[in-house]
Amino acid sequence: MRIHSESDIELVRRARAGDRDAFGTLALRHAGTVRRLTRAVLQHPEDAEDAAQDGFVNAWLSLHRFDDRQAFGPWLIRIALNAARDLRRRRRVRRTEALPPGLAGEGRDPEAQAGDALSRERVARSLGALPERQRAALVLFEVEGYSHAEIAALLGIPEGTARSDLFHGRRRLRELLGEEGSQP
């Protein structure tokens, strides 16, 4: 699949005309962001994967409504966040579990993998202690590089609230990671 040769908009136009491969290229380009975000929001790996898939399917079905003057990434993120919220409503009875380690890093040194897995589990557990909106804001800012204003628009909150969520989320996450890091 050609990942970097075409812009998102060109791929959207092709996908809109029914080209599934073009949509696959778009999906591959944005899957990391969407899947990290649904994981941060749902805190359950299987639900997060389902929500990410639902988000992409909804985006595929709604491509005719996408405005070409917009950026595709934020549009997709909004759809994925809605899919995550919908899925959580449908499966509210399911207990929230910490993300299990070990999905990535196959084929590496087992000791290094175990260390990575432990670290991932710590991060996931610490992140899980924050409110949902703070989790989403943190991932969008720290990992995906969105600005305060963009995060505010994506989450449907005032910019000041996004700043405040980030400030408190960061502080709490650092505390939690520090506390966990100091444990044997």
């Binding site: 599934r20 491969d21 949509f23 696959g24 999906a27 591959l28 899957a31 990391g32 899947r35 990290r36 994981r39 941060a40 997060a48 994967e49 990410a52 898939q53 992409f56 399917v57 595929w60 993300l99 999905l103 990535a104 890093g105 990575d116 670290s119 991932r120 589990e121 710590r122 991060v123 996931a124 992140l127 943190l138 991932v139 800012f141 720290e142 990992v143 590089g145 960061r170 996450l173 650092r174 990671l177």
Partner: peptide, 29 residues
């Protein structure tokens, strides 16, 4: 953004194989 915190978050939320995810998405479509 705090690069250290960002790297830890990225690693902690690493979803794994993107190609497999897209393959199953395309099958669903």
């Amino acid at each position: 953004p705090d690069p250290v915190l960002g790297a830890r978050l990225r690693a902690g939320l690493d979803p794994g194989d993107g190609a497999r995810f897209v393959q199953s998405l395309l099958a669903r479509l």
